[in-house]
Each structure stands twice: as structure tokens, then as C-alpha cells.
């Protein structure tokens, strides 16, 4: 059994659900599935001009893993462009960091769903929490 994939942190999910070529005469049903973390990797490296080390820390993965995600994103997008394929955004192994919090006292991570009124840490009750967005390591 392979080692399980750690979740990759996505700060800003894409604001679209896919891309479609136009003016092509070969209609194909095949779509290319671009994962959220691949979009995020491409955005961090090529849009935000971050180096791989900083970007990997932001996503919570190692630098080689980041490079693999980034490479896979580039290959997929290149293939979609050349073969005029539809790109579809797929959730993948990502998690949105806005929903997750980390407690600075007991280091547990947790979500706060809408139904919960208490905003303190569910384990130790500490108010000393922050969203994982600010925690870059």
C-alpha cells in the first residue's frame, strides 16, 4: 500500500470551474482534470513569482513534492492547449485553509462549522488560535 498523500493547502481556490477551447472542429468529450493543488502550485510559482521553497512551505508540502505538483500542472495544461481539450477543475487532495484553525496552546487543528457558537479551541478551550493561513511553516 503506498504512503498516503498529505493534504496540500490551497489559499485561494480557483474562481472558475474549467476552461474550454473555442473555434476547434474536433469536438472531444475527454476532459483534463486539473486538481486544485496543481492550480495553486501554478499560481504561486508563475503568477505570484514565488520560489519553490517558499511556495512549498505555504502549501504545507516538501519542496520536491511541490515541484512534482507544479510539473504535473504544467504537463496537463500544455496537453489541454495542444490537444484542444477541456480543462475541468477537480478538488483533488487539497484543503482550504480558511476553514481550519490551529490552537497555539495544544497544537490541535480544528474546523468551526456554522452550527458551533463557541469559537475557542475544542480541546483545551484556549482562545489563542489562528487560521492556518498565517502559519507558513
Amino acid at each position: 500500500m503506498p504512503r498516503r498523500r498529505r493534504l496540500r493547502k490551497v489559499v485561494a481556490p480557483p474562481i472558475f470551474s474549467g476552461y474550454k477551447p473555442y473555434g476547434t472542429n474536433c469536438e472531444s468529450d475527454e476532459t483534463i482534470e486539473l486538481l486544485y493543488e496543481e492550480y495553486e502550485a501554478l499560481k504561486l510559482a508563475d503568477y505570484d513569482h514565488m520560489n519553490h521553497q517558499d511556495a512549498s512551505e505555504l502549501m504545507g508540502v516538501s519542496r520536491p513534492t511541490f515541484a512534482r505538483i507544479y510539473k504535473s500542472a504544467r504537463i496537463k495544461i500544455a496537453r489541454a492547449l495542444v490537444e484542444a481539450k477541456v480543462i475541468r477543475m477537480v478538488y483533488g487532495n487539497a484543503w482550504m485553509d480558511k476553514k481550519w484553525f490551529i490552537c497555539n496552546d495544544c497544537h490541535s487543528r480544528f474546523t468551526i462549522p456554522k452550527s458551533v457558537s463557541k469559537k475557542s479551541c475544542p480541546i483545551c478551550g484556549s482562545e489563542n488560535k489562528e487560521t492556518l493561513k498565517n502559519q507558513n511553516n
Partner: peptide, 29 residues
């Protein structure tokens, strides 16, 4: 259940628990 404490949640479980407003807590000690 309103709160689940575990070490990690898979993507599918995460989506479902999120949908039903169940609080997820991750402890990795």
C-alpha cells in the same frame, strides 16, 4: 455527533462532515 476528534480525515470524509456541520479536530501527538 457534533464533534469528531481524530488524527487525520480523508478528503471524502472531510467533505461529508463539513456538509453536516460536524466539527473536525485533528490531534497529531
Amino acid at each position: 455527533v457534533e464533534k469528531v476528534i481524530s488524527g487525520d480525515f480523508g478528503p471524502k470524509a472531510k467533505d461529508l462532515l463539513d456538509k453536516f456541520n460536524i466539527q473536525m479536530v485533528i490531534i497529531q501527538d
